[in-house]
Design a protein around this nucleic acid. Structure first.
Lengths: 170, 170
DNA sequence: AGCAACTAGCTTAGCTCTAAGCTAGTTATG
DNA sequence: CATAACTAGCTTAGAGCTAAGCTAGTTGCT
């Protein structure tokens, strides 16, 4: 491959790295080039999603609960335990989310017939309709952001992130 | 370009996308390939950093305050306003962080001589020593994660993330 | 000069999360 | 079967954040 001729535009992370170079030229800033941007992207896109889901009356965290149930397929039922494990949330946090969603009529808690300690959480008809619309709106927002890269570079980015995730998450 | 011969390992995001494909084959999941991984990486690496900074007695948020002051260069002084703007935090949140760090003797609040409404926040000698050590530990942790990709693919990843960030953050 | 509009930092109320501990119910072991 | 160890979900206390509102001080307009 040849050298890059484009005069690469600088982002906020470049500014931070340059500042470090001035005051601590010995510092290894290679990690910030990647993780500094990952943090900012997670935050910026998280805020964006919050706005996309707001018209549906749900937060991002609540979206995740509904989406997990939807993804599970019919009959759209999982236990609070399965949900909190999937979403990397404590059971206490899950109790709160389920309370809100149940009050909004988007899901229903019922006793687990096979284990009297347990519950089954099931999407209501209303919850199913809502998540089926909201997930499309969310995906559209993400695609809009990726449009700047184009399909090929987006796929390349996804591959690099997969490898990094596999190396990090264990 | 030629087809990829490697039997690419699957990550948790691949599993989620496959689940969607089964129950909603119409859904555009290209965005999840990127942003799903970005969310998980931000979270996993954030937790990792929390552990790296814990021995220094500070949280990740407090690290960010000290690092911002350090990066500013001598005399390591910024206003609460500048700090909260840089760290995308409300002034209320910043008050809390400064309280903790001041109590720990890592920084000092003093009146701004030019504006009697304002304050100057300055790193103490102790704060300077602490952040100079902690920032190296943090950078090392990030480099360790990037080692799995190698330098060339890491640089490629940083470039893609920069472009995506520039497109997203406005 | 005098007054309105603005700005800095703090306080409060409310939200969501975690960590720890609780009760009810289940499983494994002797 | 008896009992110890475990598991499910909930509750509580506390951490850390935001949004809104406060006071003190500054700036701009006339």
């Amino acid at each position: 491959m040849s050298a890059r001729p484009e005069p690469r535009r600088a982002d906020p992370v470049d500014a931070i790295i340059e500042q470090w170079a001035r005051v601590r030229p010995d510092l290894d800033t290679a990690g910030m080039e990647v993780f500094g941007r990952i943090y900012r992207l997670a935050r910026a896109m998280g805020d964006r999603h919050e706005q996309v889901y707001a018209p549906f009356g749900i937060s991002r965290g609540e979206f995740d609960v509904l989406a997990t149930l939807r993804r599970a397929g019919e009959p759209y039922t999982l236990s609070p335990r399965q949900l909190s494990a999937t979403l990397m949330l404590t059971t206490g946090g899950m109790t709160g989310r389920l309370d809100k969603l149940e009050r909004a009529g988007l899901l229903r808690r019922s006793p687990d017939p096979h284990d009297r300690r347990g519950l089954q959480v099931t999407l209501t008809e209303k919850g199913l309709r809502l998540i089926d619309e909201a997930v499309v709106a969310g995906a559209a927002e993400q695609s809009r952001a990726l449009a700047a890269l184009g399909p090929e570079r987006s796929a390349q980015l996804a591959d690099l992130l997969r490898d990094l995730l596999l190396a990090t998450e264990r």
